[in-house]
Write a protein that binds this DNA or RNA. Sequence first.
DNA 1: GGATAAGCGAGACGGTACGTCAAGTCTTAGC
DNA 2: GCTAAGACTTGACGTACCGTCTCGCTTATCC
Lengths: 207, 207, 207, 207
Amino acid sequence: MTDQRGPGRPRSEAARQAVLNAAMLDLDEHGYAALTMQGIAARAGVGKQTVYRWWSSKADVVLEALIERAEKIVVAPDAGTLEADLDAFLTATFREHGLRRVLTGLMAQALLDPEFAVAFRDRFLFSRRAALRQILDRAAARGEIPGDVDRELLIDMVYGLLWYRLMLDHAPLGEPVGRQLTGLLLRAVSAPPPGTGAASKPSGPMS
Amino acid sequence: MTDQRGPGRPRSEAARQAVLNAAMLDLDEHGYAALTMQGIAARAGVGKQTVYRWWSSKADVVLEALIERAEKIVVAPDAGTLEADLDAFLTATFREHGLRRVLTGLMAQALLDPEFAVAFRDRFLFSRRAALRQILDRAAARGEIPGDVDRELLIDMVYGLLWYRLMLDHAPLGEPVGRQLTGLLLRAVSAPPPGTGAASKPSGPMS
Amino acid sequence: MTDQRGPGRPRSEAARQAVLNAAMLDLDEHGYAALTMQGIAARAGVGKQTVYRWWSSKADVVLEALIERAEKIVVAPDAGTLEADLDAFLTATFREHGLRRVLTGLMAQALLDPEFAVAFRDRFLFSRRAALRQILDRAAARGEIPGDVDRELLIDMVYGLLWYRLMLDHAPLGEPVGRQLTGLLLRAVSAPPPGTGAASKPSGPMS
Amino acid sequence: MTDQRGPGRPRSEAARQAVLNAAMLDLDEHGYAALTMQGIAARAGVGKQTVYRWWSSKADVVLEALIERAEKIVVAPDAGTLEADLDAFLTATFREHGLRRVLTGLMAQALLDPEFAVAFRDRFLFSRRAALRQILDRAAARGEIPGDVDRELLIDMVYGLLWYRLMLDHAPLGEPVGRQLTGLLLRAVSAPPPGTGAASKPSGPMS
DNA sequence: GGATAAGCGAGACGGTACGTCAAGTCTTAGC
DNA sequence: GCTAAGACTTGACGTACCGTCTCGCTTATCC
């Protein structure tokens, strides 16, 4: 269980940090669109090749920086009830909008580059979804959510709203919205279907 | 209401159509990221300057093409009840995922270019929101939705879900989802608040 | 010998003058290299087509302007002796260096465009040479120049010096130089060959 | 006198030669006016940026090619007498008219671009003048030329003639002309002033 | 006086080259 | 074998003019 290191000069941790820092600084100052591998390398005082050796694109750099800095992940401690859990999670999540520039930049890249899209989903987005899914699963186990409710749909609605407002920036996106959303979701999952129409068949499985 | 034409050679409608067509073809074949103004001009058999004269970016071209081709706008005829209206609108809307490449490409551009973001919102996104808002307003007037429900939030949740799935492409996005969503929304707006907790105060105004 | 004019709107003299003026002004202000047909037309308040209808290049415009403005041609009245004639002609000619920008611009164009070179030679340069040739021919007839002197060579040396200094702008170019040159030429054509070497065979025809 | 090389990949001599060659070939085939930086790069199989990195214009490229290829400079060995020196130098110089296209192209550029004009003068024209000046200075030291003769004027007359005929291409320009010119110059500098007129005061200093 | 014809200002058209930027790769010397 | 440096090929960028064309309009001659 050694360090597992071959011959040759070892990777420079200083260079790695310099690159991640330079990327975040440039991003804050000039926005994601103005980021370039060239610029990151220059600002970090690092050879371009060193950047390319470890990351394949500017998005890769930013993603790593984001993950490293957001290691203080939004955890979901069990508070006993769905309402309490949801409220804690959503207010915490919707408080994150300070990362707007980073997140929308990465999303833009993911939309343009399918390869990065996979990395972005797997290394970032899905780990967030997992936390919310855990909350809902717990609530279902407690019987707070009917078994016929499509929990994936609920998750997508929560994150859909978050991303939509992050991207459009046309409406507020803070704790109050999280609280509001909690209420709406609780209503939706607890109420019986209102009408009799065929449009909603809550009792059937939703594939 | 005249033709409103100044002196000089009039704009060539043929060139305009050639550009829009070339852009859509290139987009379908190679994706939005591979689109270039240069390539559009070449494929359209048009001078680069002619493209720049009328559009300021590839996103501008694609947006115009999208709007022109989607002139068959999603209208919202009054079907009498919220459920019927919603079902019609949502199934129609969620059927649109054939435009995935176009829409995600434009969104990527909007995320990178604030100037284009404004155009995209104003000329496309908001006109879609307006249709849904109309349905909800009608329902509120009929008393089908409590007055204290934040209708903008509902709209954002619907489009949030649509966009989130469009972008992540991790879950289905077709008519069934539209129907499912109809059910969920109807429950949410019709049910009384489930608990008594302070987290959701449906009876107060939501700021 | 009538006006020889068919049907149709006659050429606008106003436009012609406006173009020539605009060209000379732009030339004075920004130099020949910065002249463009487009710019000339715009400054003259004239359609581009109107310029192209009557002139085939910016050089053409400038040449016509030059000729029209230099109509007050350097004539060569017979002053009786070669020395007097030469002195008058050369001092007058070398006084012209105010036209430096125009002349060097046209020469540049002539060097780049063989077609214009012909026009420049025939309509401008050769008419200048003719005046000097007349002086030398008169002197030869009077016996002031030995018959074996190549008068074309003399002419080329005079204009060669003029153009060389115009172009390089490394040495003075005014009346004193004209006077100095007169002296040198007089010596060259009046003296017997200094040596006996075969290098100069003044008695043979010079082809 | 070391290699004086910093870090980083060294400049590619192959690319340099390819560019200079491509320029000369294009120039020979299509003339100076048709030369473009773009075309040179393409023909040399080199990126446009590589050309711009080392040269700032097509004229710069051609000038360097000319100087490199004309390294076999016209030297002026001392043959003992002015006549012999002059004859050798002028016949050699006037033999060079094979470079007509190159030289007139560069001169055109110099006339259009003052910045290049400086480079052209300093790196090419003046080095030629220096050779001739050396010859005249030697002759003056030997007493073959009166001290009151303006040697700069003589030099300008020689090169003036050369350039005038190079540019106008209306008269021959080969060894015979060189020989002819030798004779004319010898006469001019050795003869006493022919007349008594005030126009030429050979015994006074010429300002 | 109406038809015909050419010139006019304006400005869009298809092109070509410009000079710049960043991409991603390669080649040094040095640690 | 990693590092900083920096030259390399590639290709799109957005701009400037080129010379041509197509408008509506004006100004002439000719029937």
